[in-house]
Write a protein that binds this DNA or RNA. Structure first.
Lengths: 326, 326
DNA sequence: GTGCTTGACGAAATCGATTTCTTGCACTTT
DNA sequence: AAAGTGCAAGAAATCGATTTCGTCAAGCAC
């Protein structure tokens, strides 16, 4: 790897001039040519580490997601990446496993690595953005929000919950349960509030136990569904507040020998279905990729020095597939 | 962010001593305590960028995969990450989209960012490891190999192809086609050779057109399957050489109204099935996560200075689900 | 012609660590 | 007691860029 000094020596100029050539400062035509030729000849690329040390920042943005194996987050990551590429930024993708300790570790890395900014889907409300914030690096919360004053991009979760539940009611289901995520996570809270609003307004039957809290994974959804089916008066339909839990719920239904056509399932998110799902499954399509792209745009604006007041962008989800009526 | 100089000043020692405390050199008990206290008090963490510039390396490894939305690669990534964490390394995950240009860009970034090593699943045979290699950074190829002399971890693709095809033969299918990936990619080449070996040895019927090349994605699999079904004498079973193409193939079957129980499908890889797949689907389970973990282990050994001869580790796939006989 | 502005560009400082050199002190060894 | 040995720890060099500062010359006004 050639250094700026070698280029300078070969071109017969000072290192400062070489730097100026590559950073758009005033250099005479003549020397520009000399420098470029020399750089070309030596295969010179500026050392990012040295530049970063000096500039105290880099062209890398850090993306923290809770679960990289969840297609929702990979789609989101793609959105971030696409947008970042357009501005010449690289994306570092980190997996927090919804573990605040891991999250903190990565945030510290982001800080000490001088990354230009962070996009994160916080593992918990207690996320500590202190280190990043004190460096003045912008942060954008995505999908979930934080108590810190940062920009955010989220989905209109309540509306999504309402849409999902309404679709089930409209399809004729009358005993609609809800499998929500862990209590205390705002994102899932809003979704189940949407459910609650609809079941209350439409006066459907709600029993104790119709609201199940589960972890966000497949096993959580399956366990919750099993619990629902064991109720004395079980539901005839369910709203699950994320994609993985829906998979678990569908598995539980299948294991219980229930014909999927007879049981309404509404999902917030998309299922990795191979084949068209049973007609009684409603999917609310969450704009994951767009979420990522929007977050990246906002972050890049901040990195560029934008100082407008904090923004929260709310994206609307849409029903992917209206259910047939019963 | 406190610097080493501030810590040194507060502790009343020189920066060199502070550095020694954090890098395990000989420092008296007394000063160690002083330094640690001062560091604690200031919340000091060594600046990674400065350290990296000086040491000419970092504790970051770069993982390049062709498609981050493919569950096979996310599982692989998890394996890499898990292993890296154990040694205190961070993983930067980059998506090449099977685009040699993007791949090259990321490799250059890895080089100029002084990353400790690279694990990659090369987009093509023309991958250029020159920059990385000239820095002496170790590289491990995963899932696919390269013409460069680097360590590799791969799957016994031919055996997997043989296992998949044999399972179909054993299940009674006699006109077995193959949907292979793009010609020229070794990984898929080996898999289809496994198929070829079995159909030849077992004397099943093979027609022109029974071997389809497709891109590695869902649409490729679907198109290939459609082409197969349009043959004058279509196959009664198919081996698909990756998971996404299998999804496409199953979709095509479904769209053609063919009962999945009547048509044998063997997949190299796992399907993101929600529910148990039709009994005629054979899945050869590829140990993706393990692949990643092994690659990470090998890379970390090299980073640690291991200079043993080049190794290629071959992992064996296993049949996930023996088919019922017809 | 003198003084002032302006622009190109080199010298040197800087970013924050690590590491090599060097020094000084305590302790052996003959 | 002089010389040798070992070790803790400070001073200074180093990694490779960017950036400030200062110089010098050209251009222009008076």
């Amino acid at each position: 790897m050639a250094t700026i000094y070698e280029v300078a020596a070969l071109a017969g100029v000072s290192p400062a001039t070489v730097s100026r050539v590559f950073n758009g400062n005033t250099v005479s035509e003549e020397k520009q040519r000399l420098v470029r030729d020399a750089a070309q000849q030596l295969g010179f690329t500026p050392n990012k580490t040295a530049r970063r040390l000096r500039k105290q920042s880099s062209e890398v943005i850090c993306l923290l997601v809770p679960d990289i194996e969840n297609p929702f987050f990979t789609a989101l990551a793609r959105g971030v990446e696409d947008r970042a590429q357009e501005s010449g930024f690289s994306v570092v993708l980190c997996n927090t496993d919804d573990d605040p300790a891991k999250e903190l570790r990565y945030l510290q890395i982001a800080a000490s690595e001088h990354m230009a900014g962070v996009i994160l889907s916080p593992a918990s409300d207690e996320v500590d953005l202190g280190a990043i914030a004190s460096l003045g690096r912008p942060v954008v919360a995505v999908d979930r929000t934080t108590p810190y004053p940062v920009d955010a991009v989220k989905i209109d979760n309540r509306a999504a919950g309402i849409a999902a539940t309404t679709a089930l009611v409209d399809a004729g289901f009358r005993r609609i349960a809800c499998i929500a995520g862990p209590a205390g996570i705002e994102e899932t809270e809003d979704r189940y509030l949407g459910w609650k609003q609809v079941v209350t307004a439409r006066k459907t039957l709600v029993r104790d136990g119709f609201l199940q809290h589960a972890n966000f994974r497949v096993d959580g959804g399956r366990a919750a569904m099993k619990a629902l089916l064991e109720l004395i008066q079980p539901p005839d339909a369910v709203v699950t507040t994320n994609n993985l839990m829906a998979i678990g719920a569908l598995q539980a239904l299948h294991e219980s020998g229930i014909d999927p056509e007879d049981f309404g399932v509404a999902v917030l998110g998309e299922l990795p279905y191979l084949l068209p799902p049973p007609s009684s499954v409603v999917q609310v399509r969450l704009p994951a990729r767009h979420l990522g792209r929007t977050a990246a745009s906002m972050l890049l604006e901040r990195i560029g020095g934008d100082t407008q007041p904090l923004r929260t962008v709310v994206l609307r989800a849409e029903i992917a597939r209206p259910p047939l009526s019963l």
